[in-house]
Amino acid sequence: MTESDPLLQGAAAAHEKSRQFRDVIQRLRDEIHRVVVGQDAVVDGVLAALFCDGHALLEGVPGLAKTLLVHTLADALELEFSRIQFTPDLMPADIVGTMVLHEVKGGGHELRFEQGPLVANFILADEINRATPKTQSALLEAMQERTISVARQTRPLPRPFVVLATQNPIEQEGTYPLPEAQLDRFLLKLLVDYPAEEEYREILARTTGEEMPAARRVASAEEILALRRILRQVPVSTQVETYAIRLMMATQPGSPYAPGIVTEHVSLGSSPRGAQGLLLMGKFHALCDGRFAVACEDVRRAAPDVLRHRVLLNFQGQARRIRPDDIVAAAVEAVPELSTVGS
């Protein structure tokens, strides 16, 4: 093979694209970490949702910089940002928009569409579980089809369109848990944990000083869209595809790959969106690691964030305080990597 061979040229192009992808990711990471201390996994998860054309649900107790993270990411990107504080009295029209009667010059009136805060690139749905299911459901079409329908008209939302929602796991009084259809539309559910001791020092140093750090813009919408296209070019072998499918099926009670804990404690497993999410996240991890194809390890790495909110425990599972992460771990343990084993 010589340098002019198409195979080598293609490989060189892939190398270049991969490097470009990693550069942007690293720039965004650095910019976010200027404001947010630690939380590397959550930052990576939010970036993955952005580049995989998905949405992310951040769950954590108050004060762990969930909202700050999303706000910082929006600052670092040249995207239209919109923040919606979900409250019990929020109505669908408040976020989607509604038809408003306008007075026209020369007399007369006409109905015009007054768009809501949902029409933006980057949506922060803060405390999403505080709104009623009716309002939560207004997000369904926007999150899946990237359109909104008002007054018999369907309007496309700007691209990229990413919803990053936050919710608090402990204050459940007066909240409305997200329905399954809504949860399934989130590519990832990220658990935000407490920082380490050293990170606390850094947090205090940054936030109690004279000036608060702020993020600069390091990427544009066009760049994000181009990187999304690169991510989708990453190939997946038959073995890895089979592995992702079996892993998704292993969370479904009654499937041939489901371990005992799933059959006993799960009432509803992952939908096909789970397998889609596994592969997309696998592509993201492969690119970030400088590889050109997805490996089973990438799928395994993505499994907790992608599958934990798609597993619905039954009464027995809840009574025994089984966590969805335990179910996902058991599924990962049960599914063999070899495509010929267990088929």
Partner: peptide, 27 residues
């Protein structure tokens, strides 16, 4: 090897090879 040999073998049997496929095969 993170499935790289099996992936290369699988991708080399496909009809079309994009840049990432080519890189994965060589890898």
């Amino acid at each position: 090897n993170l499935n790289r040999i099996a992936t290369a073998l699988d991708l080399s049997a496909r009809a079309e090879a994009g840049p990432f496929e080519a890189a994965a095969i060589l890898d």
